[in-house]
Each structure stands twice: as C-alpha cells, then as structure tokens.
Design a binder for these strands. Sequence first.
DNA 1: CCGACTTTGTGCATCGGTTCACAAAGGGAT
DNA 2: ATCCCTTTGTGAACCGATGCACAAAGTCGG
Lengths: 225, 225
Amino acid sequence: MKSPSQPRDRGIPEATVARLPLYLRALHGMAERGIATVSSEDLAVAAGVNSAKLRKDLSHLGSYGTRGVGYDVEYLVYQISRELGLTQDWAVAIVGVGNLGRALANYGGFVSRGFRVAALVDADPEVVGDTIAGLNVEHIDELEAVIGRRGVSIVVLATPAAAAQAVCDRVIAAGVTSILNFAPVVLSVPDSVDVRKVDLSIELQILAFHEQRKAGGPLMAMDGQ
Amino acid sequence: MKSPSQPRDRGIPEATVARLPLYLRALHGMAERGIATVSSEDLAVAAGVNSAKLRKDLSHLGSYGTRGVGYDVEYLVYQISRELGLTQDWAVAIVGVGNLGRALANYGGFVSRGFRVAALVDADPEVVGDTIAGLNVEHIDELEAVIGRRGVSIVVLATPAAAAQAVCDRVIAAGVTSILNFAPVVLSVPDSVDVRKVDLSIELQILAFHEQRKAGGPLMAMDGQ
DNA sequence: CCGACTTTGTGCATCGGTTCACAAAGGGAT
DNA sequence: ATCCCTTTGTGAACCGATGCACAAAGTCGG
C-alpha cells in the first residue's frame, strides 16, 4: 500500500515550479472570495493555462484533488506554499538603492507572502544613512556583516551593470546562494548558486521583434537586401 | 543557385529570439572595446551560453560567419539589430507612474537602443502634470489620444493590479499590440496581441523553492506529514 | 599552389515539456 | 445499494529545443 497524499517525486520539473506561483496567486484570490473548492478547469482559466497542464503540474506535488469534485482551495494553497518554501519567511537584501532599488523596497505586493526586505545596501555616501521604506540604508562595506547579522538568504541586485559582478562575488562569498539580478549583465557564478535575471531591455527587444513581424507582414518588400 | 547571406527562414524559434538581445549586448561591448572579429566560442562565453547553441541561433538569421575566422562584430550587430527591429525606433508609453513607473522612466539603460519613452500616463491627479525624466505626466483620460498622437506601439503597464486589465483593454482598443506587464495579474488579451510579463514576486518564489531544496537537502526529515 | 589548421553550419540523437484522450475514482441521486 | 455523472490523474504521442560531433568551407603559412 503506497502512502497517499504525500509528495511523491521530489524532482519537480522546472517549468512546473515556474507556474506554481501563478496558481498560488489565483488560489489566494479565490480564497478571499470565499470559494472553497475549484476544478482544474476553473483554476486553469484563472491562471491562464491549459487545464491538462495544470493537472499534471499539481500531480507532481501529490494527489491533492478529489475526482468528481476538484481541489480544496485552502488545502491546495497550503500544499503549494509549502512546496515553494513560503511557510518560512525569507530575508531579502536589496543591493543598489537607485530608482529601481527604491521602487523594489517600496513595492509592497512583492514582499507579500514569505518575503521580507531585511536590508538595503548602497555604495553612494549620499544615500547611505537614508531611511527608505522604514529601513536604514547601509554602506556597501558592511555587506557581509549585514548579510550575516540579518540572516539574508536571497539578494536582489539592483546596482549599475559595472558593479554587479563584484557585488555578486561578495554576496556569494558571504554564503548567499540565491540571487535575483536586475543589472543588464551575465553574471558568472558557481553551479551551486541560483541566479534569476530580470531584464527590461531584453523584454522590450523581444516585443519589438514580434511587433516588427506584425507590422511588416508576410509581404514586407522594403527589406530587399 | 540559392541567394547567399539572406535571411533564409522567416520562422525564427522563440527560444532563439529570446537570446538574440543577449548576443547583441555582448557584441556591443566588444565593438566598444575595438574587437573586430569574434568566434562563436568567445561570443558564447560572453553571452553565457553554449557555443553550439549560439551557432545554431545565428544560423537562423543567415550565414553571416566566415569559417576559420568567426563573425564580424559590426556586421553581426547590424544583422541582429535589424532582425529584432531595432533599426527603427519604438515609441513606448509607460502607464502608471508609481515607484516602479518612475524608476522605469528614469532608467536610461533600458531605453538605450531603439526605444524611446514617449509618454507617461497616470490616473492620480496628484502626479498628473508633474515632469518626470523630462516628460509631462498626462491624465489617463487622454490615454487613447496620447497613444495616437505620439505613435506609441509598445505600452508598459506599471499600474496597480486592480487597474491593469482595464488599461490593457483600452490600449488594445487604441491599436497597441505589444504590452510589457509589470502588474501581478494574468491579462486576458486577443491572440493578436503580445504580452510579456515581468513579475518580481514570482521570481522570488522560484528562488525560494530552490533555496529550500538546497537547505533541506535530500534528508530533510522535519516534514514528516 | 598546396596542405594543415581553424571555425562554421548542421544532421542527428536526446531530452524536457505540452497536449490529447481516457480509464479510474469518487459523489450524489434514486 | 446501484448507476450515472463529473473530474482527476496519467499513458502515450507529439513538438520544440539542446548538445554532440563532424563534414564543409575558408584562412594562412610555407
């Protein structure tokens, strides 16, 4: 007899992991509206995916649905949260308090569940000492100390491109293994470190590509050589 | 006899399109450092990808390399720019001038090549009329007029989640078919419209998942049921 | 002019992810 | 208690992307 409703396979596909937060958000919305139970079809629509994909994704976590009924919203929220590691809270440090860093520090929604901005760090003496979003901006010289003291495990890089790699090296040396990088550079890191990149410029360029296609159409003659 | 060095196949894989901006950035850096020619191996390292993948990607644009030598940096910059549609310039409107919108408006690097922030729009009478990054903030009532007048073809949504879908519907009705969405909602749009999403919260959750894995390790016993 | 060397471009095997379609499982009505 | 209806969970086919490995193509030195 195999134990039921237990995470079966600890190897969850990357594509699935990337969608779990989407499901979670949709489920939170439903919970707030007092919906107790949801079918894969409805949840899929709310998350903007195909229902078969949703079911397969959820099946990687375990068998949490009831055939003929659907999924219990509260229970599924809990299971996904646990799988994503949101039942604990994560101390995040933002390095680089320019326009973007400031926006991130103030962006409440982003720190909604499970995450807490625990430190702001910058190199500019002009901003060090300022209070932003209720936090004191500390000097970059204190980087390692701050990471240790506050138990930071995720670092958000919002520095200029030129500074990113150096800061990255230092936070890794300080023991951080998860980095969210906003600087437009390819960071070089050991395999044991996870880097995710958010690059506004790249997103725009991808849009431009498709926009050009649409505009030019199949008969765009103006590009003869 | 097939015409040489001509874009052969107009169907470039999506995964390739997403990497072209990366190559372009690396190439710009090289051009600035006066490098005239680069091998697929060197460019691949600079862009952080596998060299075979890079060659396959470039081969989708045409045969722009020289065997035994490599690629001409300037020429490749031009070809990729043209393919991405960066030889024309795109008027971008930012809707929602909160912390994030402001940061985007000021973020010079993001508007570097091919893109120009042509308008800022917000609903809050408090900020309408302000000048940010040299631009006057216009009222949301003017949205359609502004889009038409300035020839905006790409819209960046930096509104609160609750407002995003409504604004999205309006810009689409005004003829926009490319949207970069920062609001944490799944936008529903016709197939003819391209939406790219940047979601800080989701990125953090993905990092947390992997971080938890590392921390817990293969023998994490504390989760017995 | 030739031969050795470098580097591209690509055929092919492989892999991960998506989608379809359906059998298995459970709920509710009679 | 039985049957029908709904919805899950998944086997299997399919599709796109990746990476290897090598032949073709071109350069450069002698």
